[in-house]
Amino acid sequence: MYRAITIVKGNSGWGGPLTIMPTEVCNKVVSLTGGGIHPIAVKIAEMTGGELVDGFKTAVPDEEMFVAVVDCAGSARCGVYPKKKVFTVNVTPVGKVGPLAKFIVENLYVSDVTETCISFAVEGAALTSKDGSAAQTVQGTVALAVTEPKTKAQARAEIAAMNSGKKKNVITRLGIAVGGVVNKFYQAGRETIDMVMKSILPFMAFVSMIIGVIQVSGIGNLIAQTVSPWASTLPGMLLISLICSLPFVAPVIGPGAVIAQVVGTLLGVEIGLGHIPVQYALPALFAINAQVGGDFVPVGLSLGEADSETIELGVPAVLYSRLITGPLAVLIAYLFSFGLYQ
């Protein structure tokens, strides 16, 4: 008999969670990874009772393919199986990328899967549907559990048989290791470019527009005369940090650090023009940023698995604390700025 499992994405993964169960027809767990059957495929087959197949040795008709386990770095395989509407488990942390990216969707695909990502589905959980049609629910898993799908010993023997004559030699293992390292570098590059395109360039576009207008329109002189004197004395900077850290101001000017970034850029221009002494760059970094994360306390705390009572009291605790530590940070940075660029 078959059992339903839930597969969630790994730490750096994408997609899912998938709650899936094999059927009489569609029950083959196909391992499409280099160097023999992948342990993840073994685990899925063991837990669901599906039939384990090495996709590189045996061709499986699409309609019998229950899950495809791949180790694709984002060029082709990770998109091929979602395109065929086959649940796809990628053991590498690759998201919606590659030439077939548009077929990689959350209800067919999950990545960076490790053994801890796979668990038995709770009874009553909705099975993930491939096309958004009415979802079935997991039923009778408890009753079925009595008839253990396949004993571990049996499964192991089968895998050993399948992998026999294909023992991983040094070159295969070396290949897998090098492939893994290269994949990680490739993924790092992809994430970096993604960050540049989605966050850094848009920010540069909007701030350089503002700076251009400020420089040409003469608002620059106004800032030089009004703001620069404040930012070039210790009391002025203490005052700026105090204002930024007021409990009713901090959450308002916190989001995305946009205001701190704009103010930082404007101060940078003033430092460049010599209106603010260069060693004040260090305390200024703290003065304009006393509010950091003041808007994000509840979200940050819940990411850290805090209980609701802690979140309730944690928000004022952080905000009150800033009234003290905001100006204090400026003072410390001021002391550390002695001898900077002199």
Binding site: G256, I271, G272, L273, A284
Partner: peptide, 20 residues
């Protein structure tokens, strides 16, 4: 924190302008 580089980089740009 690639999305919020300009708190530092904004101010750093001024330092670079001065040639430090």
């Amino acid at each position: 924190n690639g999305g919020e580089l300009f708190v530092y980089m904004g101010i750093a740009a001024g330092v670079t302008t001065l040639g430090f």
